[in-house]
Write a protein that binds this DNA or RNA. Sequence first.
DNA 1: AGATAATGCATACGCTCCGTATGTCAATGA
DNA 2: TCATTGACATACGGAGCGTATGCATTATCT
Lengths: 196, 196
Amino acid sequence: MRKPRQEMIAETRGKLIAAGRRAFGTIGYAEASMDDFTGEAGLTRGALYHHFGDKKGLLQAVIMEIDAEMTERLNEVSAAAPTRWQGFVEECSAYIEMALEPEIRRIMFRDGPAVLGDISQWQNTPGCIAALSRSLDRLKADGEIIDIDTETAARLINGASSHMALWIANAENPEAVSKRAVAGFKAMLGSLRRQE
Amino acid sequence: MRKPRQEMIAETRGKLIAAGRRAFGTIGYAEASMDDFTGEAGLTRGALYHHFGDKKGLLQAVIMEIDAEMTERLNEVSAAAPTRWQGFVEECSAYIEMALEPEIRRIMFRDGPAVLGDISQWQNTPGCIAALSRSLDRLKADGEIIDIDTETAARLINGASSHMALWIANAENPEAVSKRAVAGFKAMLGSLRRQE
DNA sequence: AGATAATGCATACGCTCCGTATGTCAATGA
DNA sequence: TCATTGACATACGGAGCGTATGCATTATCT
């Protein structure tokens, strides 16, 4: 073996994150036993404490990983659209849709904020909000939207969409509710547009 | 003593709810030891399990109590305003301000949803959202706002304001952030108004 | 009114889980 | 090659939760 050392370490970290992510995303943070999911990864709690300090540390690592993926996806979506405004709307819709995925909803919108406090705060603004902010900045520079503080708008959208997602996901008939939610949400977005 | 029976029972329930509310609102649900706060109330976990089934049951009771208080306050605020639109804006502002109170923020916006799932769902729409919905309904009937689904709008406002509150509460300089947040929020509200 | 059933609540027990302290083995570096 | 560091496992103690049980007081029945 050439340089197995660093590889093994990284592999262990990856296994722990993956195992924790699966457990947190399904049964939830509080119900996830560290002994259980480390054991499923062929490890023990010793490795977890060594790498992440404690259970919260692992959750934070999981969140950063998911946040990076979300940022990437949001950027792709907005880049693919023909116009900036359209890209922005698509981006917001994608944000709602992502919040409908059980893993993201559970970890990023439920357990994360509850355990670590406001996720959008404990780091210098995580990627997924920054992505929305950037899109708004570009629109503002183009004069396409009203004069509004972009970070505030991004957080408004973040809060509104996450609640829309919760609403949809917990509804008896998600499709019908989804129509209402997206329609109302787009109405709100439309109001940001400069009207002449 | 006349009819101490029912009174004593109600008093026990009240003590448990009060003790749980204080513990949940300060150190948080997860950190609150049932032995501790029942003991502070001069009771034991036995009483808690008897009345509420488990820790979640008590949290639910606490939430219902707080929700009722919030509803009452929101109704008062909107009733006191000179016009309906003004009352609505005041009501929304009051909602944000309430979400800034540590107890409400912690229990209603952080631990509650995390532990019980979407609070605005597990009952047939709790009071504080219903209050917003009613205000919107009246405005719509008066033709003051655009044609939008009122429940959706209420939930959008709920989500946005709770995130605004989180943002403000966790900021280094809450006053400055509060200005930005409220300004942006009112801009969003203003967009609901029918423009002619 | 006395006996019995039921209820409100406390006590006792076992279990799971977490955090830390300790141990062990492999890899690195002089 | 030997000492040291780091990665990870094992071992132990404690806390918290849920349930089963016990006890006292009140309600119900005849």
